[in-house]
Structure formats: structure tokens, C-alpha cells
Simulated scan of single mutants.
Amino acid sequence: MIKYVTYKRVSTQEQGRSGLGLEAQSTDIQRYLEHSAEKPYKVIKEFVEVLSGSDDSRPELFKAVQLARKEKAILLVAKLDRLSRKVSYIATMMEDKTIQFKVAVLPQADNFQLHLYAILAEQERTFISQRTKAALQEAKARGIKLGGLRDSTANLNKARADKALIFAKSIENVVMPMVKQKMSLGAISRALNESGIHTAKENLWKPAQVSRVIERLLANPSVRSRKPQVISAKPR
């Protein structure tokens, strides 16, 4: 019998947010067990942590790893970034011959692919942060006020639209190449989720949200000049 130890994590900020909550992780893990796990199997224990993924000193993860080692069980997480957001930590786990782990949303991925996913996700998160900061500085230089209360609904809506465009532009280099490849909205949302790139509110992507980002980008002059001739907008 194959034994599993499951580990789920949410940060303090992510608690209660749809998509990154414990319920969504439980769903991903259960789907893996039903469709991808070797039979028969048994989940011997579940561990839950409320702590940032950038902090590797996580007591519940330590307990989960220790139990998996002791029971020769597979450590199962919903997504790679639930284990850690650091490539170095993922690499260390892969090199440890005393522990085996699986990622529910990437059931067929081998160690090389998981390492590549971790590298790309960490790199893109860094790029997004840098592009967002640059866009905020540019907006500030133009006199756009993005924080605090507004004097009117119109101003509030304008501030929200500015924030939405800034975020859209921060992921332009990720989204638009997929649009040019005529990928569907559903395929793009899955690719973003599997890469650990989340929405502006740190939720998982849905086709409708991807569509709004694309619309904002194509309505922006700097992006419109590079507009692809054909866009696949039908979610699968």
C-alpha cells in the first residue's frame, strides 16, 4: 500500500481568499489521490500550516517531512509554491534521497520538470515585482494617486482602473506570448496557475479574469501596437 502525508499551507494574508485557501488545496489533493495515485493508498496524516512560503522554518512542514521519512510515505502538496517559494528549498528537497514528494496539480512531472517550474515561477515573481514597482513610479511621476480615499466615485474608479492596468502590464510578457500562440483563455489561466503566478488579489486565475487582463493590455497604446492578428478568446 502506498502511504501519503499531505501538507497544506496558507499565509496569514491568504486566509479566507478564494483559490489559495485550504478548501482549494484539499480539492487538488483529493483529485490527485482519486485519479493519479497508485492503488491502494492511504493518507496517514494531514498537516496544515499558516505561515509565509518565504519562511523555511515551518514547524508543521518539518513534522510532515519527518513522518514521511519515518513511514516511507510520499509527501503530497497541492501546488509547488505551497511547499516553498524558493528554488533553493525545492532543490534541497529533490536532492534528499530520504524523502519523496508529489505535487497534485503536476501529477506527471519529474524532478527536472519540477525544478524548472520552480525556477520559472521564482524568476517571474521577481520580474512582476520589478515591473510593478517601475509602473507605480511612472504613475506617481504622472501625478496619479493610487492610494487612499477619493473625492468622488469617478476618481475612485479611475484609481482602480490605473491599478488594474499596472498589474496587467506587469504580466504582459507572460500573457501576450500565449495570446499570440492562440491559446484559449482556459489554457492561459491554467498555465498561470501552474506557474505560481496569481491574480492581483492573490487568487487563482479563471478565464474571465484572463480575458479582462488581455482587454486592458490591448486597449493600452503601448501594447496595442504589438496586437496579435488573431486572439483565441473561447475558454475550454
Rank of each mutant, 00 (worst) to 15 (best):
R190W: 13
Q30G: 07
F112I: 12
K169W: 05
V43E: 05
E202I: 08
A134N: 10
K72M: 01
T92S: 14
G196N: 00
M93D: 02
P59T: 09
K145H: 15
P228K: 03
K169M: 13
A91L: 11
R82P: 01
R160H: 14
L75H: 02
I128W: 01
G19W: 05
N220S: 13
P59Q: 13
P40R: 09
K140H: 08
K158Q: 13
I197M: 04
T6I: 03
A109K: 06
L218M: 15
E14V: 03
S184Q: 04
L116G: 08
S195Q: 15
K42R: 12
Q181V: 07
A187D: 09
V103C: 02
L20E: 12
V105F: 06
A200S: 13
R216N: 15
I90T: 03
Y32G: 04
G16D: 03
F127D: 12
R131P: 01
Q30H: 13
M178H: 10
V213K: 05
S11A: 09
D28F: 06
E202A: 11
V5C: 01
R226F: 10
L146S: 11
A187N: 11
R85D: 01
K133W: 09
Y4I: 03
K227A: 14
A154G: 14
P107M: 11
L217F: 03
I144N: 12
V213H: 05
A233K: 11
E138H: 13
M183Y: 14
V103F: 06
A135N: 09
K234A: 11
R9T: 02
D81F: 03
I119N: 09
Y89F: 13
R58F: 03
I214W: 08
F127E: 14
S129W: 08
L20P: 02
S54A: 14
A233N: 10
N193M: 00
R190Y: 11
K70C: 00
Y32D: 01
G21T: 08
L165Q: 13
R9M: 06
Q181H: 10
A159V: 00
L146E: 08
G16N: 03
M93Q: 01
T98M: 11
G16A: 05
R150K: 15
R69T: 00
N203V: 04
G53F: 03
V223C: 14
M94V: 05
Q30A: 11
D162Q: 09
S36P: 02
A78S: 15
S129V: 07
G186R: 06
A37Y: 07
K102W: 01
E23L: 14
G19C: 01
R131A: 09
E38R: 14
D28I: 00
D28L: 01
S54D: 10
K169P: 04
E34A: 12
I231H: 09
R212L: 06
R69E: 00
A104R: 00
L204E: 15
N193D: 07
N157F: 07
P40G: 11
D28W: 05
K3A: 02
L33N: 04
R216W: 12
F62P: 02
E138G: 09
K70S: 03
T132G: 06
A200W: 06
Q66L: 10
K97W: 10
Y41S: 05
L192E: 00
G19S: 00
Q130F: 08
A141Q: 07
T199E: 06
E34R: 13
R85F: 00
F62A: 15
V230M: 09
E38I: 08
M94R: 06
A91F: 10
A233I: 08
E122H: 10
